[in-house]
Design a protein around this nucleic acid. Structure first.
Ligand SMILES: Nc1ccn([C@H]2C[C@H](O)[C@@H](COP(=O)(O)OP(=O)(O)OP(=O)(O)O)O2)c(=O)n1
Ligand SMILES: [Mg+2]
Length: 1058
DNA sequence: ATCCTCCCCTAC
DNA sequence: TAAGGTAGGGGAGGAT
């Protein structure tokens, strides 16, 4: 290793570099623990400044610390060997007693050789840590440095392994001694390597930690010790950068001083793309889930279907097969969850190799630097590296020059962001078509729950995973690996075993054993810092060791939540659920690269441009903010003006300043002028010399909806008294939204009907007062725990397999004459919400709802209201007219309209009525009992706090039941639909939203009834006039759409019929 | 106790 | 030349 690069002076702290050794001396060892905070808690007006001591850390990311290296490597070795042990010992033990390290890039590949070794009884050492432990080194090529390093070892060619296996016994290694012929490596000898003096250096090789991507910033050329915190080398400067930066025109053209810098930067930033895609995917998933649950059609316009251009995912659409998600963990009675963690293998590289198949099998990396210019030195970061490259210990996130040291022949390929986007959309499309629920983790990774799918299809998880892999491979040409387990934690660990290009099921039984071999930093969410803390406070970061610790000890050392997580993880336990509907809490943008101002004018322009950028993003999500935070990175006084990473920020001090954000009238805002002004003022208040700035970020919080959640700007009221802090918010006169929420809250024990997160317009949701949001969140939480989705087990609900590739319905058919789709109607009805809604519910004798209202058990309703406690309250809040209508409907219940014969109902009979929650007594016991329990609502009797689903709406529901039942053989009368629609509209529009619950319950009940009868047609948007079910569904969807429109207008969210 | 604010940390 | 972004979890410690 070594050598060449040093002469290029691009190496900072290469292993052999004396300065590196010197740096080690300066470093702080654990125990000395000198990380000093120099600062302060910032008061409102003062920046918070936190910095770590110059010596150990010049980088904002943290201190460089070494120590316990040998100990760590021991664990690492042990871990990897155990991992290997799982690979597959197929009986043969040709290589028993032999431990092999594979050096560099070989043919066959390191993966193949590894399998050969371990499946024949040998031990594969992925890292050459201690030469004494390795019996042989296999290689196809050696650098001079390696030759020296290995001079006393048995170095052989791969043929020794392959031929021994072919021969069935161990051939003498001496017949396969590796003899270097020539060195393709250029310049190898040009550099005098420094003799290593550190003892541990001799024993070890770079090896970086675990399988997490190498290190965010491990481009320091210090080949990191295991315990070194990822960071850039700190003390050195980058001469190239010094040179170019000295040229005024260059700086003007290529740094933040250029007004076009931001645009160009974001176009090329992989991390920016990753973050953006993640947010976009989350949105798409939410939208698809909402559509699936609501039975709504695609909202896509045909022309948009080819959203091929650009890197943005907006405009794309997924179709979720399952209309409802089986969220929440299965209760004891239920089946075990099945979670799959799906992740592309070296995503960017795989994508790039699609068009470069000839490079497959080679060490390839994706990075900006392309030519071999600069004689190999480049601080360009590697976004992704092929598995062949990983054999050289190259990691994602490493600098190219560092990678070149590990593998001089490494090949680079450029980014293709648009391609990644397209592949990702295909990938997600496939997953969405199979998953009960999906959590978007990143552009190339997702967690899916397939519990319901598996049981429905009676598939084995592993088979199903393989079919998904095949499907993705077919559609993208790329390999994904899939980890399968019964919880997220284990699924993630399983993926480690699966990669590359496999699936792996990790059972609970195997879990504990595996976990004990891992390090705490191998757990998702735990990194370098936590690991240090563990070593420091618990004496070890090895999970096997930590398994001896009590829960209390772990919590004590790591904090309550993290301690608990680790304690459980060690036992293979993880209760975390998939998260697919979290609302967004902040919107921000920041750039900490290429910031090189000279004058304040440049900084001001830049900050204001950043403000424009946040505004753009706020607009994209329809939000306004009430709080702004300016984040500033200022060069650490000890750090060189030009850090080692070209145009990087280097070691910095970090400053945050937070303040209220409000437009001139005191309202939440997304105005770029306002934001820019705030931000610039905040920056000025720091009084930093502009040339010391290295990073600038603007974050907007306390988000609210852009469109007022409530009609008349009343929403502003609570916040109008801006300046005055929280007090004014609390004293503010409750607006309608608040009243609605208060009403809900008052009925503590009663059901609070909320849409699912995914269905709530986030911007609107955010506009709710915090306490209300909290209420809602708690409700969601409780719901997730107690509600079990059951559609999948309903025997009467036939599995309706939909083609994944089913094309989406155009919203606005380009050909005007095209058959009007349901979507068109939906839109029409949304545009003219009052059209039918205001229609007077005049009775028509021929209509079902038009029957005279007389006789009957009007009293049933009242009794029930009382019985349910809450209902009377709601009922009495309803407008008189609606109350009257409800009573009227109730009276109709036992009126025999003499329509279709009841034999049809036999179909329902088999349905269990027992499922029905006791808290949902039917208005008419005799009738209700015969009817199917809406499966998705029920929950076998249980639960505390279990929400009731039907309450005051039961009477009208009984009517609907009859209505649907009696019209089972014929289409519903238009008048009836209109009447029904009118009722719902009135309910929805009742002052204060008191009727919303009712409307939702009624609508849902209607949907359930249709599902019972024509469930398979639910997602067939095209109206088939010959098909009764289709007509019913169409009617339903139209009404539903109108309800959503009202909900959006009045409450700012969509209705959930879940 | 419980909440809130200010960070740090983590992931891709 | 290179493009070190971004959102959310949660810990520490002060305010309530
Ligand atoms: N430090 C990093 C890590 C990842 N990525 C990008 C490139 C990766 O291809 C993609 C996915 O990250 P993964 O962690 O999934 O890594 P890979 O897919 O490259 O490899 P694998 O998943 O096989 O380990 O994210 C990046 O730009 N910078
Ligand atoms: Mg991947």
């Amino acid at each position: 290793m070594t050598t060449g690069a040093i002469s290029n002076s691009q190496d900072y702290f290469s292993e052999e570099d004396p300065s590196f050794l010197d740096a080690l001396d300066d470093v702080i060892l654990p125990g000395e623990e000198p990380i000093i905070q120099r600062v302060g808690a910032g008061s409102q007006d003062k920046p918070n400044l936190k910095r770590q001591r110059e010596d150990d850390d010049e980088d904002v990311y943290g201190a460089a610390q070494f120590g316990n290296f040998a100990q760590y490597m021991d664990r690492k070795r042990a871990k990897l060997q155990i991992q290997n042990a799982g690979f597959g010992s197929t009986g043969s033990d040709i290589f028993r007693g032999i431990t092999i390290y594979i050096n560099g890039w070989t043919t066959p590949s390191v993966q193949v050789l590894r399998e050969v070794i371990v499946s024949n009884g040998g031990v594969f050492q992925p890292y050459l840590v201690n030469h004494g432990l390795v019996t042989h080194i296999v290689t196809c090529n050696l650098t001079p440095a390696k030759m020296r390093e290995f001079q006393n070892m048995k170095v052989v060619r791969p043929e020794w392994l392959t031929e021994s296996v072919a021969h069935g016994s161990l051939l003498p290694w001496t017949d396969f001694i590796f003899r270097p012929e020539q060195h393709p490596d250029k310049s190898q000898g040009t550099q005098a390597t420094t003799q290593k003096t550190l003892s541990f250096r001799q024993r070890e090789i770079p090896a970086s930690s675990s399988s997490k991507s190498a290190a965010r910033d491990s481009m320091s050329d210090a080949e990191e010790e295991e315990d070194e915190r990822p960071k850039y080398a700190a003390h050195k400067s980058n001469p190239n950068a010094q040179r170019v930066m000295a040229q005024s025109d260059w700086r003007q053209a290529h740094t933040s001083a250029n007004p076009d810098f931001i645009e160009g930067y974001y176009k090329n930033s992989r991390l920016h793309h990753l973050s953006t895609w993640k947010a976009e995917l989350r949105n798409l998933v939410q939208e698809a889930q909402a559509r699936a649950e609501n039975g709504l059609a695609s909202g896509k316009v045909a022309a948009e279907d080819t959203e091929s251009g650009g890197v943005s995912m907006r405009g794309a659409e997924f179709i979720m097969r399952s209309p409802s998600r089986s969220k929440g963990k299965a209760p004891a009675s239920g089946e075990e969850r099945v979670i799959m963690h799906c992740d592309f293998d070296c995503f960017f590289v795989s994508a790039g190799l699609l068009k470069r198949p000839e490079m497959k099998g080679q060490p390839v990396v994706v990075c900006h630097s392309q030519g071999n210019q600069g004689s190999g030195s480049s601080t360009s970061e590697i976004a992704s590296c092929s598995y062949e490259a990983r054999a050289f210990n190259i990691k994602n996130g490493m600098s190219l020059q560092q990678a070149r040291k590990l593998c001089p022949g490494v090949k680079t390929i450029p980014y293709e962001f648009e391609l990644y986007k397209e592949l990702s959309l295909k990938f997600y499309t496939i997953l969405m078509s199979h998953a009960d629920d999906l959590q978007a983790v990143s552009v190339d990774e997702a967690l899916i729950e397939v519990t319901g799918t598996l049981s429905r299809l009676r598939l084995k998880a592993k088979d199903f995973a393989e079919s998904i892999r095949a499907e993705v491979k077919r559609d993208t040409g790329c390999e994904v690996s899939i980890g399968i387990a019964h919880n997220i934690l284990l699924a993630r660990l399983a993926t480690r075993k699966a990669k590359p290009a496999k699936s792996y099921y990790l059972s609970e039984g195997d879990a504990a054993e595996l976990v004990a071999t891992l390090d705490i930093a191998d757990l998702h969410g735990f990194g370098w810092s936590t690991k240090q803390k563990a070593v420091e406070k618990l004496g070890s970061s090895n999970l096997g060791e930590l398994s001896k610790k009590s829960r209390g000890e772990l919590c004590d050392a790591l904090g309550k939540a993290m301690g608990e997580t680790v304690y459980n993880a060690i036992r293979g336990i993880d209760h975390k659920k998939l998260e697919s509907d979290k609302p967004r809490k902040s919107v921000s943008c920041e750039i900490n690269y290429g910031i090189r101002f000279i004058g304040n004018d440049e900084a001001e322009v830049f900050v204001k441009q950043m403000a424009v950028e946040v505004t753009k993003r706020l607009n994209e999500v329809g939000m306004l903010g009430r709080s702004i935070t300016l984040k500033i990175m200022k060069r650490d006084p000890e750090a060189p003006v030009e850090p080692p990473k070209f145009m990087g920020h280097g070691a910095c001090e970090l400053f945050n300043k937070q303040g209220p954000l409000a437009d001139p009238s005191g309202r939440a805002t997304n105005d770029d002028k306002v934001i820019g002004e705030h931000a610039w003022r905040m920056l000025k208040s720091f009084n930093f010399p502009p040339h010391e700035l290295r990073g600038i970020g603007i974050q907007i919080q306390k988000l609210e909806s852009k469109h007022t959640a409530v009609p008349q700007g009343q929403k502003t009221l609570p916040f109008a008294a801006i300046k005055a802090p929280k007090a004014s918010v609390k004293e503010a006169e409750p607006d309608p939204v608040k009243r609605l929420c208060d009403t809900a809250r008052r009925r503590a024990n009663t059901p609070v009907e909320l849409p699912t997160y995914s269905q709530v317009d986030q911007s609107v949701y955010q506009s709710l007062p915090d306490d209300i949001k909290e209420e809602c969140e708690q409700e969601y939480k409780a719901r997730a725990q107690s509600v079990e989705q059951t559609d999948v087990v309903n025997p009467l609900m036939p599995y309706f397999k939909r083609s994944r590739s089913r094309s989406v319905q155009p919203l606005f058919p380009s050909r005007a004459s095209a058959e009007p789709s349901t979507n068109v109607k939906r839109i029409t009805s949304m545009l003219a919400p009052k059209r039918a809604g205001t229609t007077s519910p005049t009775r028509r004798d021929q209509d079902f709802f038009g029957q005279r209202a007389r006789s009957g058990k009007a009293s049933v309703l009242d009794e029930e209201l009382q019985e349910l406690g809450l209902d009377p309250e709601v009922f009495h809040l309803l407008p008189k007219s609606i109350q009257q209508e409800q009573l009227t409907r109730a009276r109709l219940i036992d009126r025999d309209v003499g329509l279709p014969d009841m034999s049809q109902r036999v179909l329902f009979k088999p349905q269990d009525k027992g499922v029905r929650t006791s808290s949902v007594p039917p208005p008419s016991q005799a009738q209700k009992a015969r009817y199917p329990q809406p499966v998705a609502l029920k929950q076998r009797g249980k639960e505390k706090g279990e929400k009731l689903y039907f309450t005051d709406a039961d009477d009208i529901m009984g009517i609907i039941e009859q209505w649907v039942g009696r019209f089972m053989n014929r289409a519903p009368n238009t008048k009836d639909v209109e009447f029904f629609r009118a009722f719902l509209v009135k309910s929805m529009e009742a002052p204060g939203g008191q009727g919303v619950d009712t409307a939702v319950k009624v609508l849902r009940w209607w949907m359930m009834l249709l599902r019972r009868n024509w469930g398979e047609l639910e997602h067939v948007e095209e109206k088939d006039k010959e098909n009764i079910g289709s007509i019913w569904w169409t009617a339903f969807r139209e009404v539903r759409a109108q309800m959503d429109e009202i909900a959006l207008r009045r409450l700012g969210g969509k209705l959930s019929l879940r």
